[in-house]
Structure formats: structure tokens, C-alpha cells
Amino acid sequence: MAPAHPDDRLGFLLSFRGELTGARIRAALAVAGLHPRNAMTLMQLAPGAVSQRDLAVAMDLDPSQLVAILNELESSGLCRRRRDPADRRRHIVEVTAAGREALGRIDEAVGAAERELFGHLTEAEQAQLRSLLDRVVVDSAAHECGE
């Protein structure tokens, strides 16, 4: 039996297209002066202040990885951390005014990249793609549990 063609292997196709998409998004964010993880962190913070612990959970990051990202963002003046007055052990993280300006550049850069990447898809097809990607199992623990 002949091996499957790469286009017939969904995992390979998704991985390859994902690498190309990732490269395009990284290039767009570089123009905005940001790394993808920094941009994603700012985007997570956009709705409002959040505890550092909750942010790590939302981003599925090890807390030490998040600390490194927040250190970069804070040294660039894009976010700030402060002690929670109700619980001094907790840090609250929020976007600064400069961070909000960066979010505008991120939105513009990513929007342009997405129009280029997905411009041949209708809005309904883009919604369908989102829905399908949401169902792709990438969490090994969920996969092992049969979820």
C-alpha cells in the first residue's frame, strides 16, 4: 500500500499551513514591534485587569513563562503589575496607555495578515473554520481521557 499523499493527511496539512500562517502573523507583529506571545498577552489583558494567576490559566502558560513575558511588557511600558489590595500575595496585571496603543497596532497588523490569509473565504466559511478548529483536540490530557 502506497503512503498517503501529504494533502490527504489532515495533521500534516494543518501543521504545514499552521507554520505558514504563524510565519505571516509573526512578520505582521514584527512590524508592530512585538513577539506573538507578547501580543497575545496584551490581547488577553485588553478587556481589563486580571490576576497574574488567572492570566496564566487563560493562556495555558506555566507561571514562570508568563513572568518572563510580563517582565518584557512591563519594561516596555505596555503593562503594569500591582499588588491586589484585597490579597497582597496576588498580582493584578493591566494594560497601560502605551499598551492600548500597541493593541491598536496589533489589531491593524493581524487584521491585514488575516485578510491576506483568509480573503478567499467567505465570512460563513471563516466561521466554519473557527468552529472546526475549536473541535481539534490539542490537549493531550483531554485526549487521554477520551474527551
Results as ranks from 00 to 15, higher is better:
residue 3 P to E: 02
residue 4 A to V: 04
residue 4 A to H: 03
residue 4 A to F: 10
residue 5 H to M: 02
residue 7 D to S: 15
residue 8 D to T: 00
residue 8 D to E: 14
residue 9 R to S: 02
residue 10 L to R: 08
residue 10 L to W: 11
residue 12 F to S: 05
residue 14 L to S: 10
residue 17 R to A: 10
residue 20 L to A: 08
residue 21 T to S: 11
residue 23 A to W: 07
residue 25 I to Y: 06
residue 26 R to G: 04
residue 26 R to F: 00
residue 28 A to H: 12
residue 28 A to Q: 11
residue 30 A to V: 14
residue 31 V to M: 12
residue 32 A to W: 03
residue 33 G to W: 15
residue 35 H to M: 06
residue 35 H to N: 07
residue 36 P to T: 02
residue 37 R to G: 10
residue 40 M to D: 08
residue 41 T to S: 13
residue 42 L to W: 07
residue 42 L to P: 13
residue 44 Q to I: 10
residue 44 Q to V: 05
residue 45 L to R: 15
residue 46 A to V: 13
residue 50 V to F: 01
residue 51 S to E: 09
residue 53 R to I: 11
residue 53 R to S: 12
residue 56 A to S: 05
residue 57 V to A: 08
residue 58 A to S: 02
residue 59 M to S: 13
residue 60 D to H: 08
residue 62 D to H: 06
residue 62 D to A: 02
residue 63 P to K: 15
residue 64 S to N: 07
residue 65 Q to K: 09
residue 66 L to Q: 06
residue 66 L to M: 05
residue 66 L to R: 15
residue 68 A to W: 05
residue 69 I to Q: 00
residue 69 I to C: 00
residue 70 L to P: 05
residue 70 L to H: 07
residue 71 N to T: 09
residue 76 S to T: 09
residue 76 S to R: 10
residue 77 G to V: 07
residue 81 R to M: 03
residue 82 R to N: 09
residue 83 R to I: 03
residue 85 P to V: 13
residue 86 A to F: 12
residue 87 D to E: 08
residue 87 D to K: 14
residue 87 D to Y: 02
residue 88 R to V: 15
residue 89 R to L: 15
residue 93 V to E: 00
residue 93 V to K: 09
residue 94 E to D: 12
residue 98 A to M: 10
residue 99 G to P: 02
residue 99 G to Y: 04
residue 100 R to D: 15
residue 102 A to L: 06
residue 102 A to W: 12
residue 105 R to F: 12
residue 105 R to Y: 01
residue 106 I to R: 11
residue 107 D to S: 11
residue 108 E to F: 12
residue 109 A to F: 10
residue 112 A to C: 07
residue 112 A to N: 14
residue 113 A to L: 09
residue 114 E to L: 14
residue 115 R to M: 04
residue 115 R to Q: 14
residue 119 G to A: 13
residue 121 L to W: 15
residue 121 L to P: 13
residue 122 T to V: 09
residue 122 T to G: 14
residue 123 E to K: 02
residue 123 E to H: 04
residue 123 E to T: 15
residue 124 A to D: 13
residue 125 E to V: 13
residue 126 Q to H: 06
residue 128 Q to K: 06
residue 128 Q to Y: 11
residue 128 Q to W: 12
residue 129 L to E: 01
residue 131 S to H: 09
residue 131 S to E: 10
residue 131 S to Q: 04
residue 131 S to N: 15
residue 132 L to F: 12
residue 133 L to E: 01
residue 135 R to S: 05
residue 135 R to M: 14
residue 138 V to C: 08
residue 139 D to W: 00
residue 139 D to C: 01
residue 139 D to N: 02
residue 139 D to G: 00
residue 139 D to V: 02
residue 141 A to Y: 08
residue 142 A to T: 03
residue 143 H to D: 07
residue 144 E to F: 14
residue 146 G to M: 04
residue 147 E to G: 01
